[in-house]
Amino acid sequence: MSATPILVSAAVLGGVSTFFGVCIAFANRKLKVWEDPRIAEVEELLPGTNCGACGTPGCRAFAEALNNGERQPSGCTVMGPEEVEDMAEFLGVDAGEADKVIARLLCAGGSDVAVQKAAYHGHQTCQAASAVSGGGKGCTWGCLGLGDCDIACDFDAIHMGADNLPVVAPDLCTACNDCVEVCPKDLFVLMPITQQLVVQCKSLLEGHEATDLCDVACTGCGICAKDAEDGVIDIVDNLAVVDYQHNHRAAQKAVERCPTKAILWIDGAQFPDQQVHKSGIEV
């Protein structure tokens, strides 16, 4: 048996590998893209949750923006104040100022105040219940209380309360938008914590039609609009709508005469007296 085939194949493979090795060496020299090594270091300092709350697609993109000076460290809502300071020091820039933004639920119709017209027995998620003629709750706009937001929240900031409404923990919420996207009734909005005048209702029914279904519904009576300064509150389609462009003129006085307490002046968390419990729903 001759050794020729072994030698030939060794020579061919050796030749090919040498050729490509030279190509790679050449490419490494000539096509190299210089990257600021600080980007990787900054990314290392960021939380790495890729939540997107800062408005860029993930932590890497935010690190690049920080490096270019397009954004300030405070743009990351997941980092605590100390971490923001550390980052500002590392980059030698001003930390910047940003109002804390958190998720607010525009419904206060918990199981103790809202009418349930039918029992829903199917797949236990809000999205599934919502697809069966609205979910069985009397108010078609209201929170179904099956906790899709609780599951969607990556930061453990949302837990279901005793009356089946989600309670957001302001210190844990990073305004990542996940709960906003998952809610089939579009009840979550992201709001700066300085916007304290909040209408916790989305019902478009009028007067007793609204209160027949829920004790804390906005009836569109317009008392809050009269008590507030001009232009702060408008009644649109039987619902009080706060114009946050005039937030600096908003005052607690507007909520005082609300007959159903649908409009509230919120300090910190919504539903502060709610006992939260972990929901037992698995996806």
Binding site: G122, H123, T125, Q127, A128, S130, A131, P184
Partner: peptide
């Protein structure tokens, strides 16, 4: 498994 219900949900969410 409520399969067609899940598909209906998916369709509703995509439409929304």
């Amino acid at each position: 498994i409520p399969l067609s219900h899940i598909f209906g949900v998916a369709r509703a969410q995509l439409a929304a």
